[in-house]
Design a protein around this nucleic acid. Structure first.
Lengths: 394, 394
DNA sequence: CCTAACAATGAATCGGCCG
DNA sequence: GCGGCCGATTCATTGTTAG
């Protein structure tokens, strides 16, 4: 990207200015994209087969696809618990496929449509188990998607293995992928870190299965055999969409994606071929209330602000120009300049770029690399950023 | 075995005798198999490409394959084909497809050889990350392997995502597969449950990465970039092999599989094409000491033993003949007979069979169904089994 | 009304041996 | 390969009933 290259080389240009330009450019793009969304059946459930339904949607039109496709479980006979009670298995017709080849073809088709409908900077999430996730993962790679993470949903309360024949199947796997190796994607790093008590959010998420009051029931029976917990969708949408983004769920079921999207101020589109599920989902989503503006704003801003330019920290007086900063072993000592750049032995650059250059490293997190003295203590300059964020909280 | 001591009293049909005959029959089979293993290069590392090396091994000859194949599709940097040749600058889409196809072919080839070398009741383990595990999983399914579990190794101390662009990649995935849907496989359920504080072992394993003293170093530098922790192999081998089983590792590296196999009294065969790794591995394994017989026996027997005949508990005097046993609600009261069978209202049978018949249930775990009084307390007869196991621990 | 016991249940590829 | 028989097996949570 041109902006990135500029940032890497341009010692003279204040990083804060670059940030500003970048974010302005981005907001213009967003506005243009949102304008097109008048063509979309926002906040509606399309009936019928999801592949057909997606074909009715315009190309390059949605920001995120979240898909919970059939797992193609291949179950044998009945299964009883040790106490003799019967296990209510997923035997629904929609999970039946004649062969693995048929399942693969189905997978390739819906992924192809999802890819067409996604914007170039959009992203895809798929959830599955070992029965299907390796097929899905391989096929989406074949189609050009670029896997960003695989995420493990570790269930706190999985169903045990009643016969003692295997390990308790205690997790499911999600794949998060962008449109390609070079494609951009949305990742709200700060929001995730804030959510995880100021530690980076990991690829394993610990959550209970959907049960209790959250579990939708009709006539005392569960409405859908595989309803996902809202916490899962909450984290997915908070991490990888912005307010106003359009989220498509091709296997809408009873509408967990729609409900959470509405709550978080995202637009949604669902595909669902079972009349019953559509009815349950619409009833559910109508009852859902969006979070108010201030709650949503708080999630994305202030402590959760994605970036603070070092220049702003300098401008704010936390690390005044002329301060000496140095790496932990004091192999290099640099001087802070007015514009937020550093100078060391004639070389100049951003906190990241100069650190990278001096070390001869492929990359460098300047916030952690450079240190300064603060009342006798040596601290990474990230400490100053934290102080800055605290002071400028809304 | 402790059962031997007790069988002196011998009722009508001492179940313990049956057990003994059974286990002797099994050990004969094992002996025959082991005899054949004289054809195998046991406890050796085969040099060269693993596909070629495996071709030198006889068909149906190993009990387990553990494979840690190259992940290959690295971070946009250098890429080597499985045959070692260099793939030029992988920057565009087409090259990605190309290298992916090469990787798939390589995967299919080594998996095919592994499948040929495995016994019909053998099993396969593969470890990988999201870069390769979906390819590997799909291909092994295509070859006829039947996935039993996918296991998540959750790292307690993963490397953070330094750039804050994704979730911390905090896990790796293992696939455990049998030779086919109907194939048998070894699973030491009790050993796993014992290891996990008397709860079923789950599909997510929490372990630190290989570091500290365990990490092999040569001239102060780590000997191998992806050395796996011994705890991981320990659990794999303890769960899915027996003492004396032959374990093949086609990507031997610095020999973690061999070291743990030797310690646990398993035979091993490695394939490794790098001279340096072979040298490090041999040096390492020579230093390894096998656990003594009693430690190994304890793991598999006593508390971990899968079976105790009710007859042995009766013979042991914990529930003497004539004792009244009953279900929790005391709907049925049965009398314990000398041979370990029960009698109730003219009907007789095993603890399982009679419980099943009386309830008209599809199945019944007699150990949990039947209760007895012990000093005023009502307990399931399983409590007596536990006492028996405790008393007869080596 | 409170507490304890009991019952229900969740994406599950859930036997082995002998004849 | 199939039928029949013997044998072994569950965790966390929520909701309901009994005391």
């Amino acid at each position: 990207m041109p902006v990135d290259k500029l940032q890497a080389t341009g010692g003279a240009i204040p990083v804060s200015v670059i940030e500003k330009v970048k974010s302005r450019a981005k907001s213009v793009v967003k506005t243009l994209e949102t304008a097109r969304s008048s063509d979309l059946p926002l906040n509606h459930i399309l009936p019928g087969d999801c592949i057909e339904a997606m074909r009715s949607l315009p190309t390059n039109s949605v920001d995120l696809v979240f898909a919970d496709p059939p797992y193609n479980l291949q179950l044998g006979g009945d299964l009883n618990r040790p106490d003799g009670s019967h296990v209510d298995a997923v035997t629904d017709h929609w999970d039946q496929f004649d062969s693995m080849a048929v399942y693969d073809r189905f997978t390739r088709e819906w992924l192809t449509e999802a890819r067409r409908v996604l914007k170039p900077d959009g992203a895809l999430w798929v959830i599955g188990s070992y029965h299907n996730i390796f097929r899905v993962g391989a096929i989406l790679q074949d189609l050009g998607f670029w896997i960003l993470n695989d995420i493990v949903w570790r269930k706190t309360n999985p169903m045990p293995n009643f016969r003692g024949t295997r390990f308790t199947n205690a997790h499911e796997t999600l794949i998060w992928a962008s449109m390609g190796e070079k494609a951009r994607y949305q990742f709200n790093y700060r929001a995730m870190k804030t959510l995880n008590d100021e530690l980076q959010m990991r690829s394993d998420w610990v959550m209970p299965i959907c049960a209790g009051g959250e579990r939708l029931k009709e006539n005392g029976k569960k409405a859908h055999p595989t309803q996902k917990p809202e916490a899962l969708l909450y984290r997915v949408l908070l991490a990888t969409t912005e307010k106003g983004d359009v989220v498509l769920d091709p296997f809408f079921g009873t509408g967990t994606t729609g409900a959470v999207a509405k709550r978080l101020g995202r637009e949604w589109i669902g595909c669902e071929r079972e009349d019953f599920y559509r009815e349950v989902a619409m009833k559910r989503i109508e009852k859902e209330l969006p979070l108010d503006e201030s709650a949503l704003t708080t999630m994305q801003s202030a402590r959760s602000a994605p970036k603070v330019a070092f220049g702003a920290v300098v401008e704010g007086g936390l690390i005044p120009p002329g301060t000496q900063v140095f790496d932990k072993k004091r192999r290099w000592i640099a001087t802070v300049r007015t514009d937020g750049s550093l100078e060391c032995g004639g070389k100049t650059g951003s906190i990241h770029g100069l650190g990278k250059e001096l070390q001869g490293a492929p990359s460098c997190n300047g916030w952690a690399f450079w240190h300064y003295e603060q009342g006798g203590d040596v601290q990474p300059i990230d400490a100053a950023r934290q102080l800055y964020l605290l002071a400028n909280e809304d």
